[in-house]
Simulated assay, not measured.
Amino acid sequence: MTSKCEACSFNATKLIKGNEYQFPVDRLTSPEITLDADFKQTHVVKNGATVTLHIAFCGKPAPLATWTKAGGELGVMADVNTTDTYSTLTIESCTRYDSGKYTLLLENNGGRKSITLTVKVLDTPGPPGAISFKDNTKFTLNVQAKPVAEIQWFHNGQLIQESEKLRFTNMSGVLSIQIRDCQAEDSGTYRAVCSNSKGEASDYGILDVSGGEFSTYTSRRINESK
Results as ranks from 00 to 15, higher is better:
174 V>I: 12
146 K>W: 07
164 E>Q: 11
149 A>W: 02
206 I>G: 00
157 G>C: 14
22 Q>R: 06
213 E>C: 06
204 Y>I: 09
203 D>P: 02
159 L>Y: 01
162 E>C: 04
180 R>L: 14
1 M>V: 14
7 A>S: 11
128 P>G: 13
209 V>Y: 01
100 G>V: 15
68 T>G: 12
72 G>Q: 12
60 K>Y: 10
200 E>I: 07
125 P>I: 03
224 E>I: 02
41 Q>V: 08
130 A>Y: 05
174 V>H: 08
80 V>R: 05
226 K>H: 08
103 T>G: 05
186 D>C: 03
121 V>S: 05
201 A>H: 04
126 G>T: 11
6 E>F: 10
145 A>D: 01
93 S>V: 12
181 D>C: 06
158 Q>E: 13
144 Q>W: 07
79 D>W: 06
28 L>C: 15
218 T>E: 02
10 F>C: 05
67 W>F: 10
189 T>P: 02
141 L>Y: 03
180 R>Y: 03
199 G>H: 10
156 N>R: 03
151 I>R: 04
12 A>G: 14
105 L>Y: 02
100 G>H: 05
175 L>W: 10
50 T>P: 06
27 R>W: 09
62 A>D: 05
84 D>W: 14
215 S>M: 03
107 E>P: 00
149 A>C: 04
170 N>L: 03
82 T>D: 12
88 T>H: 04
211 G>K: 12
201 A>D: 06
42 T>V: 09
101 K>T: 15
117 L>S: 07
212 G>S: 03
128 P>S: 10
56 A>M: 08
48 G>C: 06
31 P>W: 08
67 W>I: 08
179 I>E: 04
53 L>K: 09
54 H>F: 11
92 E>H: 07
145 A>H: 01
62 A>K: 12
7 A>R: 01
189 T>Y: 03
9 S>R: 07
70 A>L: 13
151 I>P: 00
44 V>D: 09
23 F>K: 06
102 Y>M: 05
27 R>L: 13
32 E>F: 10
7 A>T: 08
206 I>H: 12
60 K>G: 09
107 E>C: 01
149 A>H: 01
184 A>V: 13
52 T>W: 00
109 N>T: 08
83 T>Y: 10
53 L>F: 12
191 R>K: 15
